[in-house]
Design a protein around this nucleic acid. Structure first.
Lengths: 221, 221
DNA sequence: GTTTAACGAAACGGCACCGTACCGTATCTG
DNA sequence: CAGATACGGTACGGTGCCGTTTCGTTAAAC
C-alpha cells in the first residue's frame, strides 16, 4: 500500500494506518537513488519466505538477511511488515502465465493447470496460495486484497478459456462459467497441497485427468 | 507469533522421548486424580485457537488462560506445544457426522456438504482445515498425522456415499471414486474459505448447486 | 490423618522479533 | 565542490512467548 517504486511513477500512495509518517513517493531526489536491485531482492525474498512460513511467520529481519539488505532499507520502502507482505503478494501478478490462444479449451485448461502443477514443486507461488488462504478470516483485509488482485487474475485466466469453450460449442451453452472456474482452481489447489505432504488425494490422476473429470459434465457432446 | 529458528532446525518433537514423563493416562494413582474437565477444556480451547491462529500462532499460554487452567496443567498432559496441537487435531474425529443411510447418493452428498457448510461459520472445524493445510510442506509430520486421521475419515464418509451411488446405478460404473471424493472436498473447502473473507467464489451457488455441478459428469443416463 | 499427586498462579531465563536510531560509506544532483 | 539521500550494519528498548520450576492449595487414596 505505502510502498513506493523507485521507477518514478509518482502514484499517490496512501497508508491505511497513518500512525507514523508515511513513506511517501520520493520526489525526484537530489541524493543517492534507491537501488532497484534491492527492490527486487526484497520482494522476491519476501515471497519465498511467505511461501515457507506464511504471513505471520514472516519476519522482516529474515527478509533483510536473506535479501542481503539492511533492515533500514526495507523500512525505507515499506511502512511495516503488513505493507511488505501486501506488496510481495501483489508482485505475484507479474508472473501470471498467459492463456494459449489456440487449440481446444480443454487442452488450454490442461496446459495451464499443468504449468501450475509443475511450478508448484519449485516455485514459491504454489505454497503462497494456501498460506494466504488460511488467513481469510483472521486477516480479511489482507486476504481481500490478495483475492481481488491475485486470485481474480487467475480466475480471469480460466474464465477466458472456459468462455472460449462455451462460445466455440465445445462446452454446453448453459455451463456455469464461474462455478467451473472455481472447480478447476479449488481442486488443483487441494491436490497440489496434499501432494506437498507426500500424500496423494487423487491416485493415478494428473492435470489432464483432473481437468477431464471436471469437464465431463460440461461437454456438449 | 511464529518462531523461525535461524538455523533452520525445526522444533524437536519430544513426543517419542521417554526422558520426561510423556503424556499418558495415569495408571490409577494414589494421589489426586486429574480433572477430566481440564482435559476437555484444554482440547476444545486448543481447537478454537487452532482455528483462529493456526498451529504456529497457537500459544500454550493462551490456551491455558482461555481454558482457565495453569500452564503446568497442560505440560503435565502434553510433552509440548506440538503434542498438544496433534492431540487437538485428533479430537476432531469425535465430531464426525454420519452419512445418511437412505435416499439418493446425491441427496446424501448434499446433506453432508450442507452440514459442513453450516458448521463452517461456527469457526472451529471449518477454519482448522485450511490452517493446517497451509503446513503440508512446512510440517509434513503434523500434516500427515492430520491427513491420515482426520481427512481420511472425511474422505471415507464421502467415499461411502459415492460408492453407494455407483452400486445403485445412480452414478456411472466407471466413475473414479477417489477423484470424485477429492473434487467434492476440495471445492467445498475452497468455496467456504473464500466466503469467510466476504467474497464469493461461486455466486449464486450453494451446497446443492456445487454438488450437482460436480456430479453432472458422473451421473448415469 | 497421612500420603500422594494434581491443581492454579506466578516467576524465571531465554529467545525471536519489531520498529527506530545511529553509524560510516556510497552515489546521486546542482 | 557541497548537500542530500540510500546503502549495509549494528545496537537498542520493548514485547510476547516458550518451557520449566517453584509455590501454597486441594482432592483423592490409603
Amino acid at each position: 500500500m505505502a510502498r513506493q517504486t523507485a521507477g518514478g511513477t509518482p502514484e499517490t500512495t496512501r497508508r491505511s494506518h497513518p500512525g507514523k509518517g508515511p513513506r511517501q513517493a520520493r520526489a525526484k531526489g537530489r541524493g543517492r537513488p534507491r537501488d532497484e536491485r534491492a527492490d527486487a531482492a526484497i520482494l522476491t525474498t519476501a515471497l519465498d519466505l511467505l511461501a515457507e512460513v506464511g504471513p505471520t511467520g514472516l519476519s522482516v529481519e529474515e527478509v533483510a538477511t536473506r535479501a542481503g539488505v539492511g533492515k533500514a532499507t526495507i523500512y525505507r520502502r515499506f511502512a511495516g511488515k503488513d505493507d511488505l507482505v501486501l506488496a510481495a503478494l501483489q508482485s505475484l501478478n507479474e508472473r501470471l502465465p498467459a492463456a494459449p490462444a489456440t487449440g481446444t479449451a480443454r487442452d488450454a485448461l490442461v496446459h495451464v493447470v499443468s504449468g501450475w502443477w509443475e511450478s508448484h514443486d519449485d516455485s514459491a507461488t504454489g505454497q503462497v496460495f494456501p498460506r494466504v488462504f488460511a488467513y481469510a478470516r483472521t486477516n480479511p483485509e489482507m486476504f481481500g486484497c490478495f483475492y481481488d488482485s491475485v486470485i481474480e487474475q487467475r480466475r480471469d485466466l480460466y474464465r477466458t478459456i472456459i468462455r472460449r469453450g462455451v462460445v466455440s460449442g465445445e462446452f454446453r451453452a448453459d455451463a456455469d462459467v464461474e462455478l467451473l472456474t472455481t472447480l478447476v482452481i479449488s481442486s488443483t489447489l487441494y491436490v497440489l497441497q496434499v501432494r506437498a505432504s507426500g500424500r496423494d488425494a487423487a491416485p493415478g490422476s494428473g492435470p489432464a485427468e483432473l481437468v477431464d473429470a471436471i469437464l465431463t459434465g460440461f461437454r456438449s457432446s
